[in-house]
């Protein structure tokens, strides 16, 4: 399942089923405090594939070296 993630050094939004193109609409409608970072380019958006089983398990993921990756035990 495609999941849109907004992040800088940490995850700021975990949006299940959303496209990359919808990032700005989400920021404007649901995360206005992130708008400044988005416009400045410090906030990034990425879409990753998550299994349906883990669709809402954002706690399994983290930001490392500028990319979203699974936390290792």
């Amino acid at each position: 399942m495609k999941t849109l993630i907004l992040f800088d050094t940490q995850i700021h939004a975990w949006l299940t089923g959303e496209s990359f193109e919808s990032a700005e609409a989400h920021i404007r409608n649901g995360y206005p405090h992130l708008l400044e970072g988005w416009q400045a380019g410090t906030l990034k958006a990425d879409v990753i594939d998550i299994t349906e089983e883990d669709a809402f398990k954002s706690e399994l993921y983290k930001v490392k070296d500028g990319i979203i990756c699974l936390k290792t035990p």
């Binding site: 939004a13 975990w14 949006l15 809402f56 954002s58 706690e59």
Partner: peptide
Amino acid sequence: EGYTANTVWIDVNS
């Protein structure tokens, strides 16, 4: 029922 300990808005269920 869903839950989180996150301090940002996170999707938890649908």
